[in-house]
Design a protein around this nucleic acid. Structure first.
Length: 731
DNA sequence: AAGTGCCAAATTTTT
DNA sequence: TTTGGCACTT
């Protein structure tokens, strides 16, 4: 079973101790939770100790003599599972260590490896992530003659979103397209056939995506009575944290897992449902009492986290929700500091404000790890990151790219993946493309030969070589001979792979391979703790290790920068929510209806992370992707709030002369460009004539700081061009 | 067929 | 900052 137990002891330092004793079980609000028989639904607000009720329930069950291995704790993220069981460990000493816990996907993986043969598939599947899925779709797009010049056709990312969305919401892809992607209706047939090819591709190559894990888990329970008996018989008590984040399939799975005992306890808060893009549906909470008759509903309304002024504001955020089923939270925590709202002139001013405040808090005695900066999207913090770094602040960024999503990591993992699953087309392709003189065409041909052969590795060794790449293919075949020669530990295998890969690595990433080398070494450390290669591969797919910088940071007292999604379930003394500007938050394509409601809940989640102090900030001017500046207003989510609930801070960073000379961040690429006879903005003036290699002659109409020119071309109209990129000549 | 260099466009959130 | 497409060279 997914064993998070082993990791718990190593992670102690990360947790702030929750000191509880068994006597706490007698607190009235937990009585119902711990002593009720049958299904229990706990609806509770932010900071009310939801997870704690789960731990208490486990404690109670164990005290009653329930066998720990018959308790299954399902949580959303692996981190949450670790934290929960660690807490249980404090309460229960060692007996909890045999409680089974993990994520839905992790448990699905284990069960499918063990019982997948009931459904008629091999247990040798490889789990693919989003970018793999996008890769497959891209491949199929061109082979089906879609996309390309047809700019109207949706991108691979949109297609993967659609396919996955249809699965998660349990509706037909076709109706989903009409409902949510109306403008793509004319492509319905193409998209459907693309989906069919995608399913075939995965099936033929032993690949399974995240959705498949859940779908097949459900099928196993629903369609194979024998498997259902065994599996649900094993787990007599099922508990789910963050229930508002489950989708319909997961709700069905829970129903089936408990089909003969109904011992289910779920905990959730409908106001914190922020994963609907992945099919999560907070109606699951409302439906729960209907699915499980005789459900006991427990509401927890006391907040143990935040001060009253913060709570008043967060209550007001959710007050405006069009649909809510909630409770009004109260607290007895003292505090009189109202949340602050700050409108900065631009992103730089916003970043400087944050730096200044952090310094103040630090000097006032707040630990840096008790401060967090939260934002809607990963890239919203770029400016702040630069500013923090130049002021000498250390920080840890959460969310964004995972270690195993980087190209060099995928490269090395591919070798290990084909060892376990020799028909993994994607990985073979990746490996072969590294060879000199082998491109997409050749790689695809060789891959086909390999995966259709009886003995794939022999087929590789015997493949009729072309002169140009004979040497490369032979040495590759030699590598696999070494890898398969005898039983080797994952760590040994990895050593051999690295040895082979190193020269390719230095060639492919010659610009920055020293930086990437650290990642390869980090993986070495991780892999050496595994005895079994398959487990290692599964774990890296389901729970990618963090980048070396983040691992390093976790040990130290560091400021946290995080997307709101990754901050869920955590809390800090001081929280800054940045980028609360129109078009950013709510996200530009989510300004209406249900999507906007989700953005509101997202802000609610962000604001409720704060224990003592809360700052909400926004820039009045943003740089758009094409390097233009655009004035923006305060987020509509903020302007809806009752003014008395927060204080405004005036922008004091104003007041210097025009024209502004901004401190410029000089990247390697700009330095390179400067070396040439590249012109800079001050070489131009309004009205001067220029020549562009493609657009021809034109006249400068406007100069937009820091580096954009608006030029009216004789034949191509008005264009905005970046002075560093456009090859302009002065006439 | 494969590799290289250049330009312009895009950039949600995650198991 | 990264990526995809295109035109050009090997």
């Amino acid at each position: 079973m997914v064993s998070v137990m082993n990791e718990i002891n190593h992670n102690n330092h990360q947790n702030k101790g929750m000191t509880v004793s068994l006597q706490d079980l007698n607190e009235p609000q937990y009585q119902a939770v711990t002593t009720t028989e049958g299904p229990v639904l706990v609806i509770a607000g932010a900071g009310s100790g939801k997870t704690r009720t789960l731990v208490y329930r486990v404690a109670h069950l164990l005290a009653q003599g329930v066998h720990p291995e018959s308790i299954l704790l399902l949580t959303f993220t692996r981190k949450a599972a670790q934290e929960m069981l660690w807490r249980a460990g404090i309460l229960l000493n060692d007996s909890c260590k045999r409680v089974v816990g993990g994520t839905f996907h992790g448990v699905a993986n284990t069960l499918l490896r063990r019982y997948g043969s009931y459904l008629g598939f091999s247990s040798n599947f490889t789990i693919i992530d989003r970018s793999d899925a996008e890769g497959i779709v891209n491949l199929l797009k061109s082979s089906l003659g879609l996309g390309g010049k047809n700019k109207q056709f949706p991108t691979k990312r949109v297609i993967v979103n659609m396919i996955s969305g249809a699965v998660n919401k349990s509706i037909e892809l076709e109706s989903l397209i009409h409902e949510q992607y109306g403008h793509l209706s004319e492509h319905v047939d193409d998209i459907l056939s693309l989906r069919t090819s995608y399913e075939e591709f995965k099936f033929n190559h032993g690949l399974m995506d995240y959705d498949d894990l859940l779908v097949n888990w459900k099928r196993l329970l629903a369609e194979v009575p024998e498997a259902r008996e065994i599996i649900s018989g094993n787990f007599k008590y099922i508990m789910v944290d963050e229930y508002q984040d489950t989708n319909l399939i997961q709700a069905d799975i829970i129903r089936l897992m408990a089909y003969n005992h109904d011992n289910v306890m779920v905990v959730g808060d409908d106001s914190q449902s922020i994963y609907s893009f992945r099919g999560a549906d907070f109606y699951n909470i409302m439906r729960f009492p209907k699915i499980f008759e005789e459900t006991t509903i427990v509401k927890l309304e006391e907040n143990y986290r935040s001060t009253q002024p913060i709570l008043s504001l967060t209550n007001d955020i959710i007050r405006n929700a069009t649909e809510k089923y909630t409770k009004s939270l109260f607290t007895s925590i003292e505090g009189d500091k109202k949340p602050k709202v700050y409108g900065a002139r631009d992103e730089l001013a916003e970043a400087r404000f944050i730096c200044k405040k952090i310094t103040e808090f630090y000097e006032g005695g707040t630990e840096v790890k008790e401060i967090a900066v939260l934002f809607r999207s990963g890239f919203h913090s770029y400016k702040l990151e630069i500013e923090l770094a130049s002021n000498g602040f250390d920080f840890e960024k959460r969310g964004g790219l995972k270690l195993t999503e980087s190209a060099h990591m995928k490269d090395v993992l591919s070798f290990l993946r084909v060892l376990e699953n020799p028909i993994d087309n994607l990985s073979w392709n990746r490996i072969l493309l590294q060879l000199d003189k082998v491109g997409p065409k050749t790689a695809q041909k060789i891959t086909q030969a390999i995966i259709n052969a009886e003995d794939p590795f022999q087929a590789l060794a015997e493949y009729p070589v072309g002169k140009a790449w004979e040497k490369g293919l032979k040495s590759l075949a030699g590598l696999f001979e070494d890898l398969r020669a005898k039983e080797l530990s994952p760590a040994m295998l990895y050593e051999i792979v690295l040895d082979y890969y190193q020269p390719f690595f230095e060639q492919i990433y010659r610009d920055d391979y020293p930086k990437r080398q650290k990642d390869l070494e980090q993986l070495k450390a991780i892999i050496s703790s595994y005895e079994d290669l398959q487990t290692f591969i599964d774990d890296t797919a389901l729970d990618p290790p963090e980048t070396s910088a983040a691992v390093h940071a976790a040990v130290e007292d560091k400021l946290v920068l995080s997307t709101i999604h990754s901050a869920k379930g955590l809390e800090w003394d001081v929280v800054f929510v940045i980028g609360l500007a129109d078009g950013r938050f709510p996200h530009a394509s989510a300004e209406l209806g249900a999507q906007r409601e989700e953005e509101r809940r997202l802000l609610y989640v962000a604001a409720t992370r704060a224990k003592k102090r809360l700052y909400l900030t926004y820039p009045r001017e943003l740089m758009t992707p094409d390097r233009q500046f655009r004035r923006v207003g305060m987020s509509s989510l903020l302007s809806e709030l009752r003014p008395g609930l927060f204080e405004r801070i005036e922008d004091t960073s104003q007041g210097f002369s025009f024209p502004t000379t901004r401190p410029e961040t000089i990247s390697v690429s700009t330095v390179k460009r400067r070396k040439g006879k590249r012109l800079s903005l001050r070489d131009f003036s309004v009205g001067c004539r220029v020549d562009h290699p493609f657009f021809g002659e034109g006249e400068v109409r406007k100069i937009v700081q820091p580096s954009t020119l608006e030029i009216a071309f004789n034949r191509h109209g008005v264009k905005s061009l970046h002075v560093d990129y456009a090859k302009l000549k002065l006439l």
